[in-house]
Design a protein around this nucleic acid. Structure first.
Lengths: 336, 336
DNA sequence: CTGAAAGCGCTTACAG
DNA sequence: CTGAAAGCGCTTACAG
């Protein structure tokens, strides 16, 4: 049987009120009493009953993360690191992580509604944010706290972690130009995805600033999958003026492009340069190994939790953004 | 403000007792009353407060899954599918999924203790089971329900899902023998891992039944990683009598072996055959594509939840095991 | 078949 | 600085 606050109170001949206050760090408890309570509680292995506390406080001390229905479930190499980061940082604050993966957008909406309605979570973590994002509108409208990886245009004042890849893209393009590549192409994702919009913009800016031209036909959309990258690269490489450098929105896409170039018989790293984004293990294991812009997913997840909890606990609507700089990893696929 | 059971009772001029009983399907409520309650509750969007129910019932309606500290967090391609399966099946029974990843075995133990002590979960899902598994001993000792992917020798009567790969390994070995391979090697994992013990045994049996000899030096241990597979394959292939067929405990290991063979300059699919286990996407994307024994991770996860919930709800200690048969996927790496 | 009441384990005004 | 008491929203003996 788990210990209750009553057990601790009884053992010390105190009221449960005092025990509760001592444990929660109120300052109107005598320091000596507090020490007594703290050590006794620890000794007895007491930890407050979550359900009781939640019922009384009307909070759940739980954060929700719902994997969007739009993502290819099976293929996301970031997922595990992301979850690990969320879980670790939450655990440090004794919060729980509630997870679900939505298989349809309808189910996704239902999950948000159910978790909110049932007071199951105090806030949400959002990823794969879109410029126009119904989740952001929905949560903002209800005043539910959330923190997002990249900001939607719809979020008035929510905290977020932002990947700032401008310099990294400039580094990458310069590196590839030094290696002799000069006709640059970009394979992106969905045009409403903030990640897509940002990365494409950084790509275009870097190419232009390096003094090279940009053919609109060389900037294409794909779907963040291996097969999508493969198909897009095949198309690009069969143009009358094919690119000799292909930058991709993520590593999966780039691995598909790698395969396409390989099939066509192009010598990768010399005749054609290919780079990804993300810094997955798969990129370093590819043959040839894939140049990429590395981002610390685990740390990003922890940052998101920190921002969210600050918001949840203090309910101060102050916007905050953490910037993350990707790191260029030069490998064989760009002749590095 | 969410609706409470009192709101529903008031709207119908009934007592909360009756509403509660009608909602929970007790049979001592008039059918007409039940219908009334059901429709009204639905109309009002009422759903019971989780914390209150948990406090009263002394259950959490939550299942825990703690990723073992021994696994390479970043590299597990099954994780996402597994979590998705757990989450989906739990959601269907209105259970929640609590997740954590342990970074050390000490932390892992603490998490189990904390979740149990704090009544945070009603049961656990275990994976990467070992022949001698402290988790199994610990949970069994406390009488905490769990379901495991593969059975430990320590589990007296817990439900589990078991992958039965005997036939699949026979199919694989026969296929490779038809392709002309005849010196078989196996790269395994940790020797206490049930997965390892099983797969190695099936491998050896299949090789022997196919009438071929087995050199003990050709059966080696590794660590379920790409680099581990790479190193092991390099060693095997530098033996004075190197194998011409390498079966691996999982796809990651096999992808590493693929790389090793590639570097050595062996023509894969003709001079050497390589196969994995698991059926990951990475296997089908590899160059050349990797022959593997496919297992339905998502369905396995759902099965585990079904077994566990049956146990949690009815508390009947009847052992149950579900058998899963892997499916041979012939691809280029074995000349398919 | 239905209802009044106790109580799960906490937190937090309120009183002293 | 400490304690008695109310109450969060349920479920469940118990009574009728």
């Amino acid at each position: 049987m788990p210990k209750t606050i009553r057990d601790v109170a009884r053992a010390l001949n105190l009221s449960i009120t005092t025990v509760s206050r001592a444990l929660d760090g109120y300052d109107d408890v005598a320091e000596s009493t507090r020490q007594l309570v703290l050590s006794k509680a620890h000794e007895m292995g007491y930890s407050p009953n979550r359900a009781a506390r939640q019922l009384r406080r009307q909070t759940s001390e739980t954060i929700g993360f719902i994997l969007p229905a739009t993502v290819q479930r099976i293929a996301d190499p970031f997922f595990m690191e992301f979850i690990a980061g969320l879980g670790d940082e939450l655990a440090a604050s004794r919060y729980d992580l509630l997870i679900a993966n939505a298989t349809s957008e309808e189910m996704e909406r239902e999950l948000y509604e159910r978790w909110i309605e049932g007071h199951k979570v105090d806030g949400f973590i959002l990823n794969l944010t879109r410029l126009s994002d119904w989740r952001v509108q929905f949560l903002s409208g209800l005043g539910i706290p959330f923190a997002s990886l990249e900001r939607s245009n719809d979020s008035a004042d929510s905290p977020s972690v932002h990947v700032d890849g401008m310099q990294a893209y400039a580094d990458l393009v310069n590196h590839m130009r030094e290696k002799g590549f000069h006709r640059f192409a970009f394979i992106g994702g969905h045009e409403d995805l903030v990640n897509h919009v940002n990365r494409q913009a950084w790509f275009e800016q870097a190419v232009c600033q390096a003094g090279m031209g940009l053919d609109p036909a060389q900037v294409v959309l794909s779907d963040l999958t291996f097969m999508g990258g493969y198909d897009s690269a095949k198309n690009l490489l069969s143009l009358s003026q094919p690119p000799d450098a292909i930058l991709c929105i993520d590593d999966e896409t780039a691995l598909g492009a790698l395969r396409a170039a390989h099939e066509i018989g192009l010598e990768i790293g010399t005749k054609i340069g290919i780079a990804g984004f993300g810094g997955t293990l798969a990129a370093s294991h590819a043959e040839p190994s894939l140049t990429t812009l590395d981002i610390p997913i685990y740390e990003i997840a922890r940052d998101l939790v920190r921002l969210l909890l600050a918001r949840v606990k203090k309910a101060t609507p102050g916007e905050r953004t953490i910037n993350i700089l990707p790191n260029l990893q030069v490998r064989s696929s760009t002749g590095g």
